Amino acid sequence: MDVFMKGLSKAKEGVVAAAEKTKQGVAEAAGKTKEGVLYVGSKTKEGVVHGVATVAEKTKEQVTNVGGAVVTGVTAVAQKTVEGAGSIAAATGFVKKDQLGKNEEGAPQEGILEDMPVDPDNEAYEMPSEEGYQDYEPEA
């Protein structure tokens, strides 16, 4: 019985440690998101679009440190934060509304985080759909 109880105690310690790591990862992701939003706020009209992409990228980098179902929630929060940063930029006159959601080359930025393969159960990952990809044929 002692062996059984000791095993359960060790398992509990492992769960607590994993929860603490997840909590730490979420806190880091939130900190990076805040950094990115402050970065966007300090940019001029020309830099705002690039700044919004930076927020998304920093958040995406930190999301990889967070495991399990938390990833889905962090990704949703990050996307809403990026959308909010863009709205703030438009409201303050840093950028025109028609410039939001495009990178410096004018290509749409939507789907940055949505296409990231995420499995809350950590069982399997699927690649994003290939609808947006084109076949590449090298020139002879």
Rank of each mutant, 00 (worst) to 15 (best):
M1Y: 00
D2C: 10
V3M: 12
V3N: 09
F4C: 04
M5N: 04
M5A: 01
K6D: 06
K6P: 00
K6T: 03
K6Y: 08
G7K: 01
G7A: 04
G7N: 14
G7R: 12
L8S: 00
L8E: 00
S9F: 14
S9T: 03
S9A: 03
K10T: 10
K10Y: 08
A11Y: 14
A11V: 12
E13T: 11
E13Q: 14
E13H: 10
G14Q: 09
G14C: 15
G14W: 04
V15Q: 00
V16P: 01
V16C: 07
A17Q: 14
A17F: 10
A19C: 06
A19Q: 02
A19D: 01
E20T: 07
E20F: 15
E20M: 06
K21H: 07
K21A: 11
K21L: 14
K21Q: 08
T22D: 06
T22L: 13
K23L: 08
K23Q: 02
K23S: 04
Q24Y: 15
G25R: 05
G25W: 08
V26Q: 00
A27W: 11
A27H: 08
E28D: 09
E28S: 03
E28Q: 04
E28W: 04
E28L: 09
E28V: 06
A29R: 07
A29Q: 03
A30Y: 15
A30H: 00
G31D: 00
G31P: 01
G31N: 14
K32S: 15
T33Y: 04
T33L: 06
T33M: 15
T33N: 02
K34S: 00
K34L: 14
K34T: 05
E35C: 15
E35P: 03
E35R: 07
G36N: 15
G36Y: 14
V37W: 08
L38S: 02
L38V: 09
L38W: 15
L38P: 00
Y39D: 10
Y39W: 12
Y39G: 02
Y39V: 06
Y39S: 03
V40A: 08
V40N: 02
V40L: 12
V40P: 00
V40W: 00
V40T: 03
V40D: 00
S42K: 13
S42R: 09
K43Y: 14
K43Q: 10
K43A: 10
T44Y: 08
T44M: 12
T44I: 03
T44S: 06
K45Q: 08
E46M: 09
G47C: 13
G47K: 07
V48E: 01
V48Y: 03
V49S: 05
H50V: 10
H50M: 15
H50W: 13
H50D: 07
G51S: 12
G51F: 01
G51K: 15
V52P: 01
V52D: 01
A53R: 09
A53Q: 00
T54V: 14
V55P: 01
V55A: 10
A56H: 12
A56V: 14
A56R: 13
A56G: 02
E57G: 06
E57P: 04
E57T: 08
E57N: 13
K58Y: 14
T59L: 05
K60W: 07
K60F: 05
E61V: 15
E61A: 07
E61S: 06
E61W: 02
Q62V: 12
Q62G: 01
V63Q: 02
V63Y: 11
V63A: 06
T64F: 02
N65I: 07
N65M: 05
G67V: 08
G67P: 05
G68C: 14
G68E: 02
G68A: 00
A69N: 11
A69S: 06
V70F: 07
V70R: 02
V71T: 00
V71W: 11
V71L: 09
V71R: 10
V71I: 00
T72S: 01
T72Q: 03
G73M: 01
G73E: 03
T75C: 10
T75D: 07
T75S: 04
A76N: 01
A76I: 06
A76H: 11
V77T: 05
A78M: 14
A78C: 06
Q79E: 08
Q79R: 01
K80T: 06
K80A: 06
T81H: 02
T81W: 09
T81V: 10
T81F: 01
T81Q: 04
T81N: 01
V82E: 05
V82W: 01
V82H: 07
V82M: 04
E83F: 10
E83S: 09
G84F: 05
G84Q: 13
G84R: 05
A85C: 07
G86P: 03
G86T: 04
G86Y: 05
G86K: 09
G86S: 13
G86E: 13
S87V: 03
S87E: 01
I88K: 02
I88F: 13
A89C: 11
A91E: 13
G93V: 09
F94H: 07
K96A: 15
K96P: 15
K96F: 13
K96M: 15
K96G: 02
K97E: 11
K97H: 12
D98P: 11
Q99W: 08
L100T: 15
L100Q: 06
L100K: 01
K102R: 01
K102S: 14
N103H: 15
N103C: 12
E104W: 06
E104K: 00
E104A: 07
E104N: 07
E105F: 08
E105I: 11
G106L: 12
G106K: 13
G106S: 10
A107V: 05
A107K: 09
A107F: 12
P108V: 15
P108D: 10
P108C: 07
P108G: 11
Q109I: 09
Q109S: 11
E110S: 02
E110Y: 10
I112N: 11
I112P: 05
L113V: 03
L113H: 04
L113C: 14
E114Q: 00
D115S: 11
D115K: 10
M116T: 03
P117G: 06
P117Y: 04
P117D: 07
V118C: 08
D119M: 03
D119A: 02
P120D: 07
P120Q: 05
D121I: 10
D121M: 06
N122V: 09
N122Q: 15
N122D: 13
N122P: 07
E123V: 12
E123S: 14
E123G: 13
E123L: 14
A124T: 14
Y125A: 07
Y125V: 12
E126N: 08
E126F: 08
M127Q: 07
M127E: 13
M127D: 00
P128A: 10
P128Q: 05
P128F: 10
S129E: 10
S129T: 08
S129G: 13
S129K: 04
E130I: 15
E130N: 08
E130G: 06
E131N: 12
E131S: 08
E131G: 01
Y133M: 14
Y133A: 10
Y133D: 11
Y133K: 04
Y133T: 12
D135W: 05
D135E: 09
D135R: 03
Y136T: 01
E137Q: 07
E137H: 04
E137C: 10
E137T: 06
E137F: 04
E137L: 07
P138R: 07
P138M: 12
E139Q: 11
E139C: 09
E139W: 10
E139D: 07
E139R: 05
A140S: 13
A140T: 08
